[in-house]
């Protein structure tokens, strides 16, 4: 192959690569685009047009209805109450599970004691269990505690089953902080709490961000715990969205379904677009463990 030929074929190769990458990107974007344009159309236009057509007379009717008056089962108050439910579940559950994960990780990485490694192994396995295996007894426990069908009960469940992950995140991060630092601080007379507050906390900002984003996404997007442990009025937004889509009072309003889906997705999407770097770090840390 002479030089010009080689350059030409390399050119063609690059064009092909770009074309494929851009085409795939459009495919990935298509569902979001379809959701947005559908949510802005009226039902007439949805029936006469097709998925990709731009709305001729865009309206926010579907958004209004999805937020405040669509039926999610027997009640018809839109997604708004459930949006706030999710927020009331997410904020305390994320804060508490992250905090516990941080001090747990601190112990597992720098204050190991006899058996602590086994304990960590046992905890690690807890990350992977299919939650179906704890659903029934947990329902019983919540009933005994008087927390069945409550927001508090859901917060508790999310904390309990979030700790394994948050601990893992912090432990893996803290293990990279030199132990000499801890030893030097000990020589200076600093104790367990002081070392955590003065050395580890100030160094932890990135891992806090990663963990908080991870937990926020997980808990906001949870459906399983939500559908099993919530009652009417305390459902998180994912459960309400599913009910909304499957409640058919009158004709099917696809525009309202799409607006509702975007509303349910918006918080985690915003977090992703503004803090994507940390989101990806969490994903890969959560996935490629050890």
């Amino acid at each position: 192959m002479d030089r010009t030929q080689r350059i030409v074929s390399a050119r063609i190769g690059r064009v092909f690569i770009y074309a494929l990458l851009i085409f795939t990107a459009l495919l990935y974007l298509a569902p979001l685009y379809v959701m947005i344009v559908t949510s802005l159309k009226d039902i007439e236009e949805i029936r006469s047009g097709n998925l990709l057509l731009f709305p001729l007379k865009p309206s926010l009717y579907a958004w209004q209805k999805a937020w405040s008056s669509a039926c999610t089962g027997s009640e018809c108050d839109g997604l708004a109450p459930f949006f706030w439910n999710s927020l009331r579940i997410v904020v305390p559950a994320v804060a508490i599970s992250t905090f516990i994960g941080s001090i747990n990780g601190y112990v597992f990485s720098k204050w190991q004691f006899k058996g602590s490694n086994y304990l960590f192994g046992a905890l690690l396995l807890g990350c992977f269990i299919p939650f179906q295996v704890i659903l029934l007894p947990m329902a019983k426990l919540l009933a005994v505690l008087g927390l069945a069908n409550t927001v508090t009960g859901l917060v508790l469940v999310h904390i309990i089953y979030g700790i394994a992950f948050t601990t893992l995140f912090f432990r893996n991060y803290y293990i990279g902080i030199p132990t000499e630092l801890v030893n030097a601080a000990k020589l200076d007379g600093a104790g367990f709490i002081k070392i955590y507050k003065l050395i580890f906390l100030p160094l932890s900002k990135p891992i806090f961000v990663v963990t908080i984003i991870w937990q926020f996404t997980q808990i906001w997007n949870d459906f399983l715990f939500g559908v099993v442990y919530s009652g009417s009025g305390t459902q998180p937004i994912t459960v309400a969205l599913n009910n909304l889509v499957n409640t058919s009072v009158g004709g099917k309003e696809y525009n309202v379904d799409m607006a509702a889906a975007i509303i349910a997705a918006l918080p985690t999407l915003l977090v992703y677009f503004f803090a994507g770097k940390y989101f990806i770090k969490g994903l890969t840390a959560g996935a490629v463990k050890g």
């Binding site: 990458l21 851009i22 795939t24 990107a25 990935y28 974007l29 569902p31 979001l32 379809v34 959701m35 559908t38 949805i46 029936r47 998925l51 996404t217 906001w220 997007n221 949870d222 459906f223 994912t238 969205l241 599913n242 889509v245 696809y254 379904d257 799409m258 509702a260 889906a261 975007i262 349910a264 997705a265 985690t268 999407l269 977090v271 992703y272 677009f273 994507g276 989101f279 990806i280 994903l283």
Partner: peptide, 30 residues
């Protein structure tokens, strides 16, 4: 491009299901 390939990961499966249920709608969808 990376951001675009990864954004579905941030969305809940319920949202994904809702969106695809519409896209694959027999009659009005694809």
């Amino acid at each position: 491009l990376r951001t675009i390939y990864l954004y579905p990961m941030a969305v809940s499966f319920i949202v994904t299901g809702t969106a695809w249920k519409w896209i694959l709608n027999p009659g009005l969808g694809i």
